[in-house]
Write a protein that binds this DNA or RNA. Structure first.
Lengths: 194, 194
DNA sequence: AATTATTCATACAGACTTGTCTACATACCA
DNA sequence: TGGTATGTAGACAAGTCTGTATGAATAATT
């Protein structure tokens, strides 16, 4: 019975909160604006989420899920680890464009909430760990290079991924991720086995 | 006549605001906390700065100045552009350690204030431009490579610089900047002239 | 010596914040 | 038919925030 669409109230809250957190920032978005733009009652928000922090944790989980599922879908049928790595940067570019260059939710949140004992902060760091693991796994599947080269490659990929994501936000265009992809290809080419 | 030291009231405000903006974030730091911890009156703050935003702009300018002067000093007597580039990552590591891994003020501020028409946001982007120009200038001084290679190198350096800075904040250690330096050396080595 | 610049302490306005509560309506399920 | 889950509207508490105002004291400068 949502006014706009067929989303459940809970999903309507998550979707509106995501849009506002991304375009305005977490601390500059109030509960009152969320409920107003979502078209739901305040009591409904607090029925589904125990606090604004809790809502933010769910927002981060949801963003991570959208990224993960979208990436998996994008990389379907690509098995070569080098191609999967390059494809990840292509998809990141697409993801950032679809988010209107506000997309790196975990960097944004860690910037806004630097306290390590905060559960929102911790959730953001956990998402970062997911990205690290992804690159580590794919680097490990590259054959003909040493373990050290694999680790170095994974670290470099993560740096280029984060740098590209953050610069997309700063410059409001996706050039940095094109540059990052170039650097990734160069890094892969400099490996012995390529 | 400051209680703690011999700083002027204005410098005392900047210093306290810098510490709090970095450790707590801009939006989670109130004017009242700044004046209390700086040991000055509220009227004194508004005598020197017309608003909190204005204070934040000065904070960003001051951070950029500290970085720029510290880097120039660190690179004294180093003329080879490759060595200057590598030295920049060494100094970034040092800088981040001294800032207790909260140091990338411009990324933090853009994350907190994503509105492009905001003067604080604009000042942060201006700092980023300074970094871009620095890498561009040094890349251009490398001899024996094409103009395109110079541009690609500068872009890669900026990505690794930002990625390393942000990951230092996320992981609260300087490993990412060690990794970034490694990647920089690899990128320089892969150039024809090296 | 007189003027101006700087600083103090503190009260206050006005708007905002998150979260609670009341009271009621609807939907589903047993 | 009765109970539970989910929803609405909106008032309210209790605190936060930025910025202004008042009125006096001290320091620097001319």
């Amino acid at each position: 019975m949502s006014p706009n669409n067929s989303l459940s109230v809970r999903d309507q809250i998550i979707q509106t909160a995501s849009r506002l957190f991304l375009t305005q920032g977490y601390n500059q978005t109030g509960i009152n604006q969320i409920i107003e733009e979502a078209g739901i009652a305040k009591a409904s928000l607090y029925y589904h989420f125990s606090s604004k922090e809790d809502l933010c944790v769910e927002y981060l989980r949801n963003r991570a899920k959208i990224w993960r599922e979208g990436l998996e879908n994008y990389l379907t049928n690509i098995t070569d680890p080098r191609e999967r790595i390059i494809g990840t940067f292509d998809y990141r570019k697409k993801f950032m464009e679809e988010s209107r260059f506000n997309g790196c939710s975990y960097i944004r949140i860690v910037s806004e909430i630097p306290q390590e004992d905060n559960k929102v902060h911790q959730q953001a760091v956990a998402i970062k760990e997911m990205h690290r693991a992804f690159f580590q796994e794919n680097a490990e599947q590259i054959e003909g290079i040493t373990a050290e080269e694999k680790t170095d490659l994974a670290n470099t990929l993560l740096l280029l991924f984060d740098g590209g994501s953050i610069e997309c936000m700063i410059y409001k265009n996706s050039e940095p991720l094109i540059d990052a992809k170039k650097a990734v290809i160069a890094a892969l080419k400099s490996l012995r086995s390529f």
